[in-house]
Design a protein around this nucleic acid. Sequence first.
DNA 1: TGGTTCACG
DNA 2: GACGTACGTGAACCAG
Length: 962
Amino acid sequence: MHLVLVDGSSFIFRAYHALPPLTRKSDGLPVGAVSGFCNMLYKLTEDLKGEDEPTHFAVIFDYSGSSFRNELYDQYKAHRPEAPEDLVPQFPLTRSATRAFNLPSIEQEGFEADDIIATYACRMRDAGGKVTIVSSDKDLMQLVDDKVSMLDTIARPGQPPLRWIGPDEVVAKFGVTPDKVVEVQALCGDPVDNVPGIPGIGIKTAALLINEYGDLETLLARASEIKQNKRRESIIENAELARISRKLVQLDCNTPVELDLDALVRQPLEAKLLIPFLKAMEFTSITRRIAGLLEVDPDDFEADAELAAKGASIPGAIDVSEGPAPASGLSGPDAHAEAVLEKIRAIPCKHDDYEIVRDAAALAVWIEDIVATGHVAIDTETTGLDNQAADLVGICLATRPGKACYIPLGHTTGNDDMFGGGKAEGQMDMRQALDMLRPVLQDPAILKIGQNVKYDMGILARYAITMAPIDDTLLMSYALDGARNNGMDALADKYLSHTCIKFTDLAGTGKNQLTFDKIEIEAAARYAAEDADVTLRLWTILKPRLVAAGVTTVYETLDRPLTPVLARMEARGVSVDRQILSRLSGEFAQRAAALEATAYELAGEKFNLGSPKQLGDILFGKMGLEGGTKTKTGAWATGASVLDDLALQGVPLAKTLLDWRGVSKLKSTYTDALPGYINARTGRVHTSYNQASVATGRLSSNEPNLQNIPIRTEDGRKIRTAFVAAPGNVLISADYSQIELRVLAHIADIDALKDAFEEGQDIHAMTASEMFNVPIEGMDPMVRRRAKAINFGIIYGISAFGLANQLGISRGEAGDYIKTYFARFPGIQDYMAEQRRIVKAQGYVSTIFGRKIPFDNVNTKNPSERAFIERASINAPIQGSAADIIRRAMIRMERVLSDENVPADMLLQVHDELIFESPADKADQAIPLIKRVMEGAAEPALRLSVPLQVDAKAAQNWEEAH
DNA sequence: TGGTTCACG
DNA sequence: GACGTACGTGAACCAG
């Protein structure tokens, strides 16, 4: 006799996670997990054929709800996340699948699958038979002996698809024989099931102890003999926890099962049960395969009518039911997932098959294809990286994997004559080509797919093409994986195992790098068309993944619709007054020169003031000053805080250096550099926003960075006066007041903070008043300052060290402040603990709108890295939720302004601030609208439990408007 | 190219 | 008891 017990629940979850979100073609019902489940079950029966074929067979499921273990320990499996939305409807379907395979589907209220498995395994063993448990769950390893083995069917790269687990494998895993596994687990616990164990004891130590003492009770009785202080105390202190843990992991062989062993006798597959089920699920390839196996014609069977009834639709999922049969050697779900990828990978990137479109007739064929397909991947090639300055050189298109073309439009001949050469042969007239493409690119029924499509939108907008609607593989990857390397080359490698032609292979590097128009058309075509081809392939893979990962809403509401908004902001640019900057440069140059002379005199020698190394040598070497600290590379630290200290101690050189750094920073980074960014065509400065580079969901700005224009010092603010409105217009600056603290009050649900915001109180004064028991009226500004630093610290994941540094107090004192704060606002501490737990459990934290912020290495043993991840995961939901809110405001803003006929243009975003330009006489109308949109930006998706407040003002320049 | 510093939220 | 710290960016400059 041979009994096979399948751990059904683990089959389902594995199938679900290994597969893209397949849906039933007719109505979109999610069936990916069901499909994988069927494949795995079928594959298993095939694998077990031969001698010793199973005589008894059952699939065991967990019954949702609690078991006796929850009464023992209320935290048992308490942190398990809810099953994904699109998996829930598949649970009952897998039960149906099991019955369709003519196998008993067993589950029982109040009992876990593991106990039922244990019970049947014991009974069969006692009856003298053999048992195979199909699962990789280590909790079942305690059952293994010479009669009972486990079978892990998951295919891992480089390992055989089947892995038998016998006593030897258990010893390898736990360091003890199977009968001692529960003793080890009692000590080391199990984070997956939230079994506590003894803190500080892992699997290695546990095995060591059990091998020495035999079992848990003996160990506890003789715990005082343990030499290691910490270990001994932890064991003595947590003895009860270990006893509970042992009860939690010990499987129960006496579950009152409803069916006895005889009921598990294996029944043959029956076509009349199985085929109607598979047909109802619309699994065509499995149906075909099984019909072949059973030697029946699937057309003789009707789909199960009840199961064929309508299900939920998930848009965007791709259908592979007509795909090729899974490659042999892989288990079900892997094979199926591979099938999708293979369909795409198998079509080669044959560079010589890409078409070069040189005339209208050829282009017309492509346009027809695009219209028929309904979508097209597009990539523009230009003379540079700045899409407000570069010129169009060519366009590539792809309509399906492997089918791509390049339309050369602006290639020039040679670069040896001083006029840059004439137009190269064999190209369409640019204007004619764009006129032909415009209707397609603007057609609301045709989706345009790009990688960083904002760039291409910016280019095409200058040729009077407003590209819409769009999808962006860069943003999809960002929604899925966060601010990782989301560049096309990396994505091609990751998802397609494909290495793209590098731009530098084509154009060279350094100052001799060719611009794209100088590259020979045939070579350009191979490179460019590949980009469109790869983009299209990535899209087919990434789009369904959004659903599976639960980030569709984030992508669709926060990422995708922002792109056209940003493209327009970038195109508008902002007016910058050259004269003002030039005057300031002169002023700063003079002051820097004077400070430089003073510094040489004080130092007694000339040196490079900009070199931290030389400065460190002078201060701490030559001048022999005490109290210098080293940076991690061993160099003297000469940062502002160090120089501040020295200045306070009466070192005049330190003060001089600080002043010099101040003016030279302003000069080099701003007043000297900004004029170089004024676009010759528009006369304005066009920053570029990176929408997918910040981990938390913020934007970043570059070339130039207009999100770090000075404001904190008087000199710095002068630079803002150079950002001006066009003649007849004004700039309007609208910024959220304390948005991150408000978000914190909402997320952490802190009544005192929420009330204070509701009543419009000074939040830092309120905090100070609560903490230090002083009235808000007539408060000492220093007291308020401390509270303010703490409020900021909280947002950053406070540490005593950081707060002490910020306030210039001792670490002990800072620690006391934090204690007081936590005592006064206990909800904050709960919030922080929760984020720390979440990041460890799932590898990411989330904003209130569902954006996921992933972290690498969440289980690192490095204490500082760990602390860093904890602080960042406390900060990320706060910073990220605020970022989501302003994104929503930006997405909605243009529509509201145009509906109300208010001509105000959004120009810039600085994290919690939006800058607009409007005719001077329209500002009074614009301001209340802008405030309304920004203050209501969370709704209707979310009703914040604190009000948002926006302050807005209009003026001639940014300094006055802010 | 990596390290340091400093501008912003 | 170590570990080295406030969160998130981009740009300029130095030094190798």
